[in-house]
Amino acid sequence: MEQHSDVETTNPRDQIQSDICLTCKHLPGCVHRSKQTTSILFCDLYEEGVWSADLVVAIIDKHSNERGGLISILEAIQAKYGFLPESALRVVAQRTGRSLVDIYGVATFYSAFTLEPRGRHLCSVCMGTACHVRNAPAVSEEFQRQLGIHPGETTGDREFSLETVNCLGACALGPIVVVDGHYFPQVNTRQVGEIIDKTQVGLDFVEVATDQRVFPVEVFCARCNRSLMDAGHPIDGHPSVRVTISFGRKHGWLRLSSLYGSYTIEAEDEIPEDTVAQFFCPTCHAELAGATDCPICAAPMVPLIIRGGGMVQICSRRGCTSHLLDVSGLGA
């Protein structure tokens, strides 16, 4: 988080947007980011009568030109409040010129949307077939017992919501629990209390050194599907990931540690702090570019395909430690 504030003061682009909340994707007027101390799913707790219609209008105007913008609008509102308030849906209907029942139909169709207020942390327990046979129901019951709520409910202090999902597509990791986008593989009932404690501390503050989630990955170029691994040049005792980068007028190789959670790099040229570099595949020379931006510093994220399915995205800004692991593509 130290580095986080560092980025804010030194980068001119972020200075202009310093009062813009990145949790709800660049909406002016949201200043809750500065108050934020732990990782949460949304930045503003909705209170009836204290919600801002202007914010919802800003969300709608941002997406109004997109085809199929309704889902984006609903996603942004849910990112803002954690659920879809009735009053916000009425504003959406009025502003987009669609009937309220259309919007209500979309909001009730997708299980990602909820019309009930959610807690700050969302625990999703997978109850898919593979997880189910590995005792996921016991894990779910342990969550219910420790949180004192049933699936689909929220604790009285609005800290935790519990839900069971049908399959997260990560069957090899089952029984799997996802809390606020962090994956906990092979969970047993004894670990449930630990997960809840970790979540309350804030999952982003969990020490990397003691974190069981540090593991080597083998990555591929998304374009040519050739391996980016360089066995002749190990970093942290594992083959490094070799890419070509360019920034400013410089162009050279960069080797990254393949340990997920380690930030060790070696580069041909010294990369100044805060530089946003372009990443290229050394074999096919295609730019490794994705559609997402870094949730912390808003620089473009670089997607790398993991062997066996899934994708890891790393932030292209030097010094930013943001990375996203997406194993949703991990086939059954």
């Binding site: 009735e86 849906l89 009937s99 309220l100 029942v101 259309d102 919007i103 209500y104 139909g105 009730t108 169709f109 997708y110 299980s111 019309l115």
Partner: peptide
């Protein structure tokens, strides 16, 4: 546009918003 489909699968039904 007062009524429409709500929900999905087994819960799909026809109703008014909320």
């Amino acid at each position: 546009g007062a009524i429409g489909f709500t929900g999905r699968g087994q819960e799909r039904s026809i109703g008014t918003p909320f």
